[in-house]
Amino acid sequence: MRAGNPARSAARWIALAAVVALLAALPWCGNAVLVQFGISALLLATLAQGWNIIGGYAGYPSFGNSVFYGLGAYGVAIAMAQYQLPFWVGMLLALGLGVAFAGLLGLAVLRLRGHYFAICTLGLALVMTAIVSNLPLAGGNIGLVLPLLGNAALFYELALGLLVLATLTVFWLARSRFGLGLIAIRENEEGAAVMGVNTTLYKVLAFMLSAAFTALAGGIYAYYITYIDPAGVFDLALNVKMIIMAVFGGPGSVLGPVLGAFILSVISEILATKVTSVASMFFGIVIVVAVVFMPRGISHLVAHVRQAGWRYFVDNVRAHRL
């Protein structure tokens, strides 16, 4: 949050804009597999960035974000498959469902802290699968089939746009009064309250903001994949993935979760194609090594490894050993 020198920050903005422009041009290189991979990586990065708001900034390790994702997916699916409404109306429904649910849920469970909050949201994620499986409107446990659009490039650009929006929001957050209030809650909630931070309101707002991006990502996914069922979109493994990616990249930083999602997506894709049978084991090893040597993520590594050198890793191992 330091106000670095203006020439360097301008150079950084230009570099970032160039990266976004390059990414936006990717569908025109004509490789369908690459575009498909890109959509999934961009959506995952959006999810990691969404989780970053509640988990990284406010410090509440949410396992409920997969619920917002599922609600977003069902919002679009119900609008398009059951009522033949256009996609954008579905996205509004997805947004409304996710945000409203986060608000209600937040009021109830954000009074719990640490492990208790994690366990409570975890339980909720399990319950949601069962509830949606029994809703006729949502197609029960058979699921819903959406109209086929077959335009991968469009979904790619939508996912990229959403990721850019989420990242700009977090960029603003990191420099705002609201964001500083969230960090204060993460660092010491009681201290934040006696200094005048309305902790309940701030936590619920952060949860709703987190849910907004997560639900929209779910909505894009539903239309892109054209078929969803409860077990597929209310998937706890997806929530775990968001957390791993955000933490790997650097929770509570602006670009960390995005970098984390991209790097881990690439690693997991390469492993899955080259060493198929033991890919998940290798993936696990990557995570373990990362947590041991750089527990505060890539963004922290990039900022500190230059001055500390290899000692950075040694110090981390020392500081966090059990």
Binding site: A184, E187, N188, G191
Partner: peptide, 9 residues
């Protein structure tokens, strides 16, 4: 008395 600073800030 038991100080409550925001350690990471």
């Amino acid at each position: 008395q038991v100080m409550k600073p925001f350690p990471g800030m």
